[in-house]
């Protein structure tokens, strides 16, 4: 058995249907389907190489799956260009940090609002009044996020050279500033120590409440995933092997076999 089908009543904000993605001969994702229920935290877990980050890259259109569909509400994400995805209200962070090292922390976060602002090149060159108003709104939104995540001391500092934990927070701020409907977090606990991880768990829950956002979480840290996720999807070798509440998944024999003792 082992396969638990999703249906817990609430509407799905994101539906992944039969996604298959190959790199040459290597099948990275093999017919994966799952739903991300609105307003919930969904954990996506699996051993190394299971295809978690690949799934993220497919959702944000950095990769193009060979077959399958990804629906965000009524929009088919696979029909979009990568830069159009954030405009739907999808933000993400990266596993290996993808900040803009030469820009200041503040500018990094400002770029996060790119998809939410409109100033075109001509209006901006002439700095038409509405562009000025838009910039002021940008500043307010950025200020709010900077204060929320405690980045004020670093705001004028270039991103390069800051400690790892701070960089992770900057990435989170850059994703949050766009007020996304769906937030994709790729290994937010990677590289953090024990206390930082528990603080992160609280932060992620708080973000969900405060910004009213649905969260899809890829994470290695089993303790974190199991404690904050409403539902969990387990991938192994590109296939979905289980889905359910954390408790259901923890007891699933397939999952136990896949992890073979790994876990906490």
């Amino acid at each position: 058995m082992g396969r638990l089908t999703s249906s817990n009543g609430s509407q799905a904000i994101l539906s992944v249907r039969n996604i298959t993605l190959r790199f040459g001969g290597l099948v990275a994702l093999d017919g994966v389907s799952f739903d991300v229920p609105t307003g919930r935290i969904l954990g996506l877990i699996g051993p190394n190489g299971a295809g978690k980050t690949t799934m993220f890259n497919a959702i944000t259109r950095l990769y193009r799956p060979q077959s399958g569909e990804i629906w965000f509400g009524t929009t088919n994400i696979l029909a979009l260009a990568p830069h159009e995805v954030p405009r739907l209200g999808i933000s993400r962070t990266f596993q290996n940090l993808a900040l803009f090292p030469s820009m200041t922390v503040r500018d990094n976060i400002r770029v996060g609002l790119h998809a939410r602002t409109k100033a075109d090149v001509f209006s901006q060159a002439l700095r038409l009044p509405w562009v000025g108003r838009e910039e002021r709104r940008t500043e307010e939104t950025v200020d709010e996020v900077i204060d929320y995540l405690g980045l004020r001391p670093f705001e004028r500092h270039p991103a390069a050279g800051l400690p790892f934990g701070t960089l992770k927070r900057i990435e989170l701020a850059r994703a949050l500033v766009a007020r996304p409907k769906l937030l994709l977090l790729d290994e937010p606990a990677g590289g953090l120590n024990h206390e930082e991880v528990s603080a992160l768990g609280a932060l992620i829950r708080d973000i969900r409440e405060r910004y009213d956002v649905t969260i899809l979480l890829v994470e290695h840290h089993m303790g974190l995933v199991m404690s904050i996720s409403d539902r969990v999807v387990v991938l192994d070798f590109g296939k979905k092997i289980a889905e359910g509440t954390p408790d259901e998944v923890r007891r699933d024999p397939e999952v136990i076999r896949a992890y073979l003792g790994v876990g906490e």
Partner: peptide, 20 residues
Amino acid sequence: RFGRALVAIRDNEVAASAMG
């Protein structure tokens, strides 16, 4: 917005694209 996007492209094209 334009200048920031340009620098973002210079620094990290993938991330810039992921920011829209």
